[in-house]
Simulated assay, not measured.
Amino acid sequence: MTGNPFDGIREFVSAAQSLSFTAAALELGVTSSAVGKSVTRLEARLGVKLLHRTTRRLNLTSEGEAYLASCLRVMDELAETQGFLTTGQQEPVGRLRIDLPAAFGRRHILPTLIDMAVRYQQLDLSISFSERLVDIVNEGIDLVVRIGSLKDDAEIVARRLGSQSLLICATREYLHRHGTPQAPADLLQHDCIVGWRNGTRKSWMLVDEKGQTNEHDVRVKHEMGDGEMLLDMTLAGGGLAQLPTWLVQTPIQQGLLVPVLEQYAGAEMPIHVIWPRTRYIQPKIRMVVDELLALARRDAGIFRPDQGVPNPQGS
Rank of each mutant, 00 (worst) to 15 (best):
A236V: 00
L187F: 09
L240W: 06
R297C: 14
H216A: 14
T61P: 09
E77P: 01
P270D: 04
E228D: 15
E262D: 10
S20N: 04
L60Y: 03
G64I: 10
T22L: 15
P270F: 02
Y67E: 08
R279L: 15
G195S: 10
G105F: 02
A185I: 15
V273S: 00
G83S: 12
I114T: 14
E65P: 07
K284Q: 07
N198D: 11
D152N: 05
M1E: 14
L51N: 05
Y67M: 12
G255K: 04
E65W: 03
D299S: 13
V194R: 14
L161A: 04
P283L: 00
R160P: 02
A16P: 02
P184Y: 07
G301D: 15
R107D: 10
D76R: 12
G199D: 01
L293Y: 01
L96P: 01
A265R: 03
R304W: 05
G266V: 10
I141F: 09
G239H: 05
T213D: 04
G237K: 05
G238M: 13
I302D: 06
R298Y: 00
L206M: 08
M224N: 11
M116I: 09
S18Y: 05
T22F: 12
C169W: 04
A170G: 09
E268L: 05
P92Y: 01
P5T: 02
E262A: 13
S128L: 10
L240S: 07
L113P: 12
L188H: 00
R159F: 02
Q122Y: 07
D290Y: 01
H176L: 14
D115Y: 06
T61C: 10
S38H: 04
F21N: 05
R57P: 00
G148D: 03
G199Q: 04
P111F: 06
G195F: 09
V93C: 10
Q90P: 12
V145W: 04
N138Q: 11
L230D: 00
V134F: 13
V288M: 03
A102S: 15
I302W: 07
F129G: 07
E173I: 14
C192H: 04
A16Q: 02
R56M: 13
L292V: 02
F6D: 09
E27A: 14
S128P: 03
E215D: 12
D152Q: 08
G8L: 01
L125Q: 05
A44W: 02
G301A: 12
L85A: 07
E215I: 00
R298L: 14
S149T: 09
K49M: 08
I252Y: 06
M205G: 10
G255A: 02
A185N: 13
D135Q: 07
G94K: 09
E223L: 08
Y280F: 15
L19S: 08
W275Q: 10
L230F: 00
T213I: 11
E173A: 15
R57E: 13
V207E: 05
P276N: 11
A23V: 09
